[in-house]
Design a protein around this nucleic acid. Structure first.
Lengths: 141, 141
DNA sequence: TATTTTTGCTTTAAATAATAAAGTAAAAGT
DNA sequence: ACTTTTACTTTATTATTTAAAGCAAAAATA
């Protein structure tokens, strides 16, 4: 789980932390699909392996992108929730969506569409972030 | 070089194309550091291997993120330039920079800083894009 | 003209990482 | 007490990355 940085570049360093094959999809599932348990995250369409999901959750927790806790009514199941650091990945994720919607479909016709009446990025991001914060409030009470 | 899509997710699909360890760094070098030849790209601080640089340039060319051409004065050296599709990755790259500047430094104190007097994202992105377009004009004459 | 260097690769072998599958232990449910 | 669920860990297989060497065409140098 020991991560190394390839260079002093601010972009490369971010990619060294969360630029792997799975981290952003885990964060997508949490932020956009309100997933919060190992089981829910495991059921993603992409089929992450249990050892990788386990390892990535651990790393993202160590990076304080998300927190792990148990709810009083269930001593077994862990609840994973994004921190501010994780929620602040929303703008980056939106830019991926926008670029993909415009340019990736040509290579993947069956790909989902991005439907947004409003095309105000800032509003859109704030909406997603606000909704997630409400969700967190509901979960931890 | 045959790429497959893991799912119909718009985010996962973009990551399946350019979410590998090197593509965004190649695009960074082109867009932010005006690199345009194999040799210049090979000299990146991160030390990409020649076979991977070669393969990625080929893939990014096939995706029309960049173009490959020769200049009349040199029949040997290839010149790689970003297309609009590539230049349109600037907003995504800026979001990586902003998140990294805010949150990654804690884990990598020696990391470069992002210095921007103006914090207007749109202006900043347009500036970088405009500068790159001028550069392309200068190169291809 | 002959030799050397540069460029942009390809090939190969070794190291590293990802995946699939099975196993495990603690908690919860029946 | 027995079974299921959860959240892993372990192991073997497969895939990818890296490092190193090699190569051919073009350009530069002698």
């Amino acid at each position: 789980m020991e991560k190394k940085f390839r260079s002093s570049c601010i972009i490369a360093s971010a990619l060294d932390l969360i630029g792997d094959k799975w981290s952003l999809l885990i964060i997508r599932d949490m932020l956009m699909h309100k997933k919060k348990t190992f089981k829910e995250l495991l059921a993603s369409e992409e089929g992450v392996a249990t050892n990788l999901l386990s390892g990535r959750l651990k790393l993202l927790e160590s990076l304080e992108v998300l927190t792990k806790r148990k709810l009083p009514e269930n001593k077994k199941e862990n609840i994973y929730l994004l921190t501010k650091k994780g929620i602040d990945l929303a703008p980056l994720i939106l830019e991926i969506v926008l670029w993909s919607d415009q340019y990736v479909r040509a290579y993947h016709p069956g790909m989902n569409r991005f439907e947004a009446g409003v095309i105000n990025k800032i509003e859109l991001v704030e909406n997603v972030q606000q909704e997630y914060k409400v969700f967190v409030g509901e979960v931890i009470g």
